[in-house]
């Protein structure tokens, strides 16, 4: 299979206005992915499926990632000239900016016909609150149907054009999205005889602690 950069340049040549880039994966797996903008993801997906060199006809997995908002600190060096005529003073100025959070959908694509893969495709939403929708890729790969329902259930990403978008693991009236980073689980830890970590606090809230410790034999 051709390298990812080549796929990216061919996509840019085919779809001139599209936002396509290679997102490097710094981990040891080095499985780099294609980051595609929301507006062009459907046509790029169809191209990846139909292109004779790629023929990525099997979407084996679709998953979601929750990127919460991050405070990024930029450090800039400022040189101020000395009015007395001496050497200019160099100081560091720290500016904070808020990088808004977003939700990301990741697709793993393989080719059954040409027996190669995977190509990892990523799309991002605008934010995590009111603009959390991406086009659905179920019309391109049917196997994405249930996976996108799961991402809708657990992350809250709305897929436009999905034939049957409703919750799949949780019940329909459930209000939370459990895989988000800010999910708070219900307090039902009344019987925790071996609590560790944050469970110790939850168990204490459920019942007040009694002096434990068995007598030394």
């Amino acid at each position: 299979m051709e390298p990812l950069e080549q796929i990216c340049s061919r996509l840019l040549a085919r779809f001139p206005g599209a936002e396509v880039s290679v997102l490097p994966n710094p981990g040891p797996a080095a499985q780099h992915s294609l980051l595609v903008g929301r507006a062009s993801v459907r046509e790029i997906a169809e191209f990846l499926r139909d292109d004779p060199l790629l023929r990525l006809d099997y979407c084996s997995n679709a998953t979601g990632v929750d990127w919460p908002e991050k405070v990024i600190v930029d450090v800039t060096k400022v040189t101020t000239p000395d009015p007395a005529g001496g050497p200019p003073k160099v100081s560091e100025v720290k500016t904070e900016r808020l990088q808004p959070g977003y939700l990301e959908v990741v697709y793993h694509l393989y080719s059954m016909e040409l027996r190669h893969g995977p190509v990892v495709l990523r799309t991002r939403t605008v934010n995590r609150t009111d603009q959390a929708s991406v086009p659905s890729l179920t019309p391109v790969w049917r196997s994405a149907e249930f996976q996108e329902r799961e991402i809708f259930d657990l992350f809250g990403v709305v897929f436009e054009g999905h034939p049957d978008l409703r919750r799949i693991l949780m019940w329909d009236g459930f209000k939370d999205h459990p895989m988000r980073r800010d999910y708070v689980e219900p307090e039902d830890y009344e019987w925790e005889p071996t609590p560790h970590g944050d469970l110790v606090e939850k168990a204490k809230r459920a019942r007040p602690p009694v002096k434990g410790g068995e007598p030394v034999a």
Binding site: D176, R207, G212
Partner: peptide
């Protein structure tokens, strides 16, 4: 099915957790 959990999350007449912690 409630908004965040089952309603009620347990049946207190059936689920009787002992007062004292593990023996």
């Amino acid at each position: 099915f409630g908004d965040h959990d089952l309603v009620p999350p347990k049946n207190p007449e059936v689920w009787k957790v002992p007062e004292s912690p593990p023996k």
